[in-house]
Design a protein around this nucleic acid. Structure first.
Length: 230
DNA sequence: TCATTAAGCGTTG
DNA sequence: CAACGCTTAATGA
């Protein structure tokens, strides 16, 4: 069990909830640590928790028919996921894999459904999250032809630091170039090369074991229209 | 053929 | 000690 204070620290959505709802949510959440490279659940599994990343990094993806690993999204600390499967009462449609040691907050299904039924603030949050995800998906289809490595990196970084989806991350994120590569479908070398290009463009500042985004808006739109360089 | 990658290794923070 | 940068041999479009 966790404290209300802790919940507010790791869950952006909790900050908008009235005290009674926070108390209710708090009682339905347990935390658990997963080792690096651990599967939280496989596609097809039942996993009856709504889940938030407290620390670490999770990759959401699946394996295509030809056996290729496909990444759909990376989940940094502050990201919550799984509401679709819970609401529909379905099995998971994606694999969830930790890229490094990761601590998860797990809300049981009954509690999640209780909030979903009764809390206006919680539903407002869910709608915002759905809407933001949809927007990202549309953007992905829209400029599908983002073949440059820097472009892929820029897109994935912008996703990770999306303030609506991951309100607690801020502009600085702890992530290695290798991990960023895994999320972007790039090797370590290419990730390094692409990141340096983004740094030269003045969009990010590279640090040891992490980076800071200097201009999230421009990062978002990187590769749109005119400049299609590498 | 040329670009990309995994693997290894020295350097760095 | 883990992240980074670089070299090299293998791989594959």
């Amino acid at each position: 069990m966790i404290t209300a204070e802790h919940l507010r620290a790791v869950a952006g959505w909790a900050r908008d909830l009235p005290e009674a709802d926070i108390e209710y949510a708090r009682r339905g959440i347990v935390e658990k640590t997963f080792g690096k490279g651990a599967y939280i659940c496989h596609r097809g599994d039942r996993f009856d928790y709504w889940t938030g990343v407290v620390s670490g990094l999770v990759r959401l993806g699946s394996v295509s028919k030809s056996g290729k690993e496909v990444t759909f999204a990376g989940l940094p600390p502050g990201g919550w996921f799984g509401e679709g499967s819970l609401i529909k009462g379905e099995a998971r449609r994606y694999d969830l894999l930790t890229l490094r040691e990761t601590r998860l907050a797990m809300m049981n299904r009954a509690t999640f459904l209780g909030l979903f039924e009764n809390s206006v603030a919680f539903n407002r949050y869910l709608v915002r999250q759905f809407n933001e995800r949809l927007g990202q998906f549309i953007a992905l289809v829209e400029h599908d032809r983002m073949h440059s490595t820097a472009g892929k990196l820029a897109r994935n970084l912008a996703w990770l630091l999306n303030p609506v989806l991951n309100p607690t991350v801020g502009l600085r994120i702890e992530i290695t170039q290798e991990e960023l590569g895994l999320l972007s479908g790039l090797s370590r070398q290419m990730a390094n090369q692409g990141l340096k290009a983004l740094e030269q463009a003045g969009l990010v500042r590279l640090e040891h074991g992490g980076l800071t985004v200097l201009d999230l808006d421009r990062l978002r739109g990187y590769g749109d229209g005119s400049d299609m360089d590498d």
